[in-house]
Amino acid sequence: MSLTLLALLVRAAGLTVAISGVSIALGLALGLFVSVASLSRRRLVSVPARVYVSFFRGVPLLVQLLLIYNLLPAAGIDVPGVVAAVVGLTLCTSAYQAENLRGGFLSVPRGLLEAADMAGLGAVQQFRRIRVPIAVALTLPTLVSEAIMILKASSLVSVVGVVELTRMAQDLASSTYRPLPMFATAGALYLAIDWTVAGLGHALERRARWGRA
């Protein structure tokens, strides 16, 4: 493997990290919104949220990506492939993160909210200061593994023409006729990224332990 080829792969890995990072962040925000909606007592709000979660968890990401990639132009929206990729990954991960956070919100002990009631905290203050931090901390391991899933799943955006790590490896494999080293290197780069994220996740989990052993 020449250094030039390696540099191309590493640069493409940068795009993989960027696409995944943006999608995870947007997906977390959207997932938070959807999870709150799914917990609403109004069925008009909670049922659509649950259907949303079920759909995006029930359809293969590849099919979602193909659909979005073809749907946007059909609806007259012309966007670059990268944007379609981020939209697809965001919608998909938001459904998983919503389901995850829903469980987190349900596990916040009632007593902590009663104490907040007695302290005079309003609904919005309780949400921001008590419910979100505790729900996120409780579900942090799942959030981290979901982030790693999205990093890996971002390889599928190669299919809709985004030249990220997998697509770059594919292009180089066919131009050099050496698929083995190209895909093996791509795989190793994914491993390096995932293991880094997992390490960061563990560090975060340690911080969110708040004195527990």
Binding site: P109, A115, P133
Partner: peptide, 23 residues
């Protein structure tokens, strides 16, 4: 409360000052 219900993500001082600051 019987179960104290201290907010686990805040220090002792944080628990005592939370409502003073926010409310």
């Amino acid at each position: 409360f019987q179960q104290f219900n201290l907010w686990p993500h805040m220090t002792a001082l944080g628990n005592v000052t939370e409502a003073l600051r926010v409310v």
